[in-house]
Amino acid sequence: MGIAPISGERVTAAAEGDVVVFLIGMRINRWRAVRHWLPALAAMPRMLKELSRDGDSGLLGMRRLGGGPRAHGVVQYWESREKLLAYASDQGGQHRPAWAAFNRRVRSSKGGVGIWHETYIVPAGSYESIYVDMPPAGLDAAWGAEPVGRRGERAAQRLASGAA
């Protein structure tokens, strides 16, 4: 995969309505507990691949988070909370078996690996964005981009307009 081209202009995300942001990650607490953290680490790419292949999954975009060798995470942008929750509980998807296996392993790991997630439902008018000389990254990668002037030149204008 090549490097995404830089836009060369000031843009904002073309998001409409509420925005669903899901952050998920793990932390390796004990390197020697490989049998506990490696399966959790390996499960995320499988889930992201599954979601990316399914145009109806509701996953609009994602970005990996840095955090050093111990910490791994992903920011995900979703079409709706309903689609996020549907994926989480889908008996036929990658998530449920990975979560069940993690729960079984964690009992004996004695803190070898930690996981976390946070979900935010951000109401329309409560988010704004700007990207200058950037490839798509974040909301604009998930929702597309449009010139800043369409929503306001300043952050306060974009927030006051009720749109991102």
Rank of each mutant, 00 (worst) to 15 (best):
A4N: 08
A4R: 13
P5A: 08
R10S: 14
V11F: 04
T12N: 07
A14F: 00
A14M: 00
D18E: 13
D18P: 07
V19P: 07
V20C: 08
M26G: 08
N29L: 11
W31V: 11
W31K: 01
R32T: 12
R32A: 06
A33N: 10
V34Q: 07
R35Q: 02
R35D: 13
P39I: 10
P39E: 09
A42Q: 14
A42T: 09
A43R: 08
A43M: 08
A43Q: 13
P45N: 06
P45A: 05
R46Y: 09
L48N: 10
K49P: 01
K49G: 15
K49R: 15
L51P: 05
S52N: 12
R53H: 11
R53S: 14
D54G: 13
D54T: 13
D54F: 11
D56S: 12
G58S: 08
L59G: 02
L59R: 04
L60S: 06
L65A: 01
L65K: 03
G66R: 11
G67T: 00
H72K: 15
V75Q: 12
Y77R: 01
Y77S: 03
W78Q: 02
E79C: 01
S80L: 09
S80V: 05
E82H: 00
E82K: 01
L85F: 12
L85N: 14
A88D: 05
D90T: 06
G92Y: 07
R96E: 09
P97K: 11
P97G: 09
A101Y: 10
A101L: 12
F102S: 06
R105V: 02
R107N: 02
R107F: 10
S109A: 04
G111T: 12
G111R: 04
V113A: 08
I115P: 02
I115R: 01
T119C: 11
I121H: 00
A124H: 03
A124C: 08
G125H: 07
Y127D: 11
Y127M: 09
Y127V: 13
E128L: 09
I130C: 07
V132S: 06
D133H: 08
D133T: 00
D133Y: 05
M134R: 04
M134P: 02
G138Y: 03
D140P: 01
A141F: 07
W143P: 01
W143N: 14
G144R: 11
G144W: 01
E146R: 10
P147L: 00
P147I: 06
P147H: 00
V148A: 13
G149C: 13
R150D: 05
A156K: 15
Q157A: 07
Q157D: 15
R158C: 03
A160M: 01
A160R: 06
S161M: 12
A163T: 13
